[in-house]
Write a protein that binds this DNA or RNA. Structure first.
Lengths: 338, 338
DNA sequence: CTGAAAGCGCTTACAG
DNA sequence: CTGAAAGCGCTTACAG
């Protein structure tokens, strides 16, 4: 018995030829209709889309990519567990769409190194790659030799890739000046170690403290809630207790706030806390965190546009964009009671 | 002047032919080496990989997919902003890899509906789709007609798709029994509305309360921190104040804990709180949430294996897996003081 | 191992 | 609008 070809499996996708046959036109015409090119009457377009819908036809992305030799995909390398990255990719999607690009996500997870995620993206021949988060100059340079690259976050310079970063130093100064203006003199910084922007935030903190003749105290931290909770324990060992803390980022700040409250202290009554990022978590009503907001949609916009300029406008010189930061005063800062 | 073909752009990817030419072998042999098939000596393999590395060659996924007519990609539809989904995808990656599959992420965001993400995944011709989170029976059934489908989370039944869900009802009973055993009599449930598992968790709560002759009180909620914070305000209006709360999920529980502490109450001193999910957030030291853990890695494993069975073993009957839940007693529950 | 060949599902000119 | 044709970068037999 000959095989009928019907395996009963739902994954035999219809092709352009099926649609063409059903409508009674050429495959080329179907292609034209689906790409929205001129050369087909409105009536034909309607019939083609109608037939496609009935058949459940959708173009094969792999075939389109292969033949057109022109990817309309932006690869985005990100860490799913990083809330700030999630905020960024949610902003990247509409920006990419505006320019006619799709987004392909490359996830970096505990079991999946950056290199693995990169190879996957390059395997899909994405037109460009947006790299969120930390990366060394060597990594970025190597990647940029293979694909147009925009690094989002790290303060790196190079003429083979673009970057979009925030004015972390200025943001830190805004945060600390705010605390000083409220009357705080004993302000501690829980830093972000070697993570993106951490050095500049430290610098900004130190500069303001020096300017006001105040002693700088830095507790080593990281950009996580755990590190904030840990730092809070350190804080409690200080005598006298600092009246304010400038955290390396929002996640760290949230950890600090919760740990302090758990230990029976009030925020901002006993201790004021400022974060950094302006993440969604900071906005939650039970957190209501005073923070330095990075311009997330502006960053997403600049990153996508940098990629588009290289892709569609032929720009080849590097471009390094720095987005402004903004102090958002909310409920975790107040004048010191002591 | 003829165009040399060198545009100065870094995105002219080398092909298999380039590698073959460099090594001095046929393209077919390079293909064999890259797919790890037999038919090439160890020495040839080394030379091929060496040349590929020097050229920066990586196979074109689109071309492989197109020609082999056999996708080794699992599409995963998820919501980046949902921490529980992030925990799941991090577990899905290694499981998929174990079976020789790659993962393609389809993101559902505020600006990007599920249908859009689905079309993208189908455009890539992923071999199967794992659907995380909420979906209606109609949606799931329609999708399952086009691609082998595993729905993770929703308590749906159908013979066109597989599901993996948790024993939410039993989990809820474990949580509430725990509170009753501690001596609580006034236990409120902040529910998850129409979200996945919410109905079963409500049922479990009601069953235990009824069994012990206790009055059931349900505050309408959602699976978010905001809803928890909101519910905490409701709670404070209760007279007398309930001594324990069973939250619809961990995010909601975290919102409740924080809001209560912010209002000056202690957890578990004044109020005990139990969550649901066993998410990473619940484990954080400053939260230390008592919760009902869903078997995340077991769920990921079952979901991937269900897909693999349809793909590689030809299974066509539906399979509905229910994973056990487990009570994890941590620091947010204690005997009532009142 | 080689080498020629076919073909996956498309896009892209091109003559009619 | 059609129709035949070439080709994207691969995989997959197949004869040698």
């Amino acid at each position: 018995m000959p095989n009928t070809g019907d395996t009963g499996r739902p994954n035999r996708h219809p092709t352009m030829a099926d649609v063409a046959a059903k409508v009674g036109v050429s495959r080329a015409l179907v292609s034209i209709v689906f790409r929205g090119k001129e050369g087909a009457s409105q009536e034909t377009r309607d019939r083609v889309f109608q037939a496609a819908a009935e058949l459940g036809y959708h173009p094969d992305t792999a075939a389109q990519l292969l033949r057109s030799h022109r990817s309309r995909h932006l690869g985005v390398l990100y860490t799913p567990a990083e809330p700030f990255h999630v905020d960024l990719i949610e902003a990247i999607y509409p920006m990419a769409e505006k320019h006619g690009y799709d987004v392909v996500l490359g996830a970096q997870t505990p079991t999946r190194a950056m290199t693995k995620a990169v190879e996957e993206l390059l395997g899909f021949r994405t037109a460009a790659v947006l790299l969120l988060g930390d990366a060394t100059l060597a990594e970025v340079t190597r990647l940029a030799a293979r694909v147009p690259l925009v690094a989002v976050g790290p303060h790196l310079r190079g003429d083979a890739f673009d970057t979009v970063s925030s004015d972390d130093s200025r943001g830190a100064r805004l945060a600390v000046e705010h605390l000083v203006e409220l009357g705080h003199r004993h302000i501690v910084h829980v830093d972000g170690g070697v993570k993106a922007g951490a050095a500049d935030r430290r610098r900004g903190y130190r500069a303001v403290m020096r300017k006001h003749g105040l002693p700088a105290t830095i507790i080593p931290g990281a950009y996580t809630e755990e590190s904030g909770a840990l730092a809070a324990r350190e804080l409690l060992r200080c005598d006298p207790l600092p009246t304010a803390v400038f955290a390396g980022n929002d996640r760290c700040a949230v950890g600090i706030v919760h740990a302090l409250r758990r230990f029976g202290l009030t925020v901002p009554g006993d201790v004021s806390v400022v974060g950094f990022d302006g993440s969604r978590a900071a906005q939650l009503p039970h957190i209501d965190l005073t923070t330095v907001r990075q311009d997330i949609s502006g960053t997403a916009e600049a990153a996508v546009e940098s990629a588009i300029e290289r892709l569609d406008d032929g720009r080849t010189e590097a471009k390094h964009v720095i987005r402004k930061t903004q102090l958002i005063v909310r409920g975790t800062t107040a004048p010191p009671k002591r």
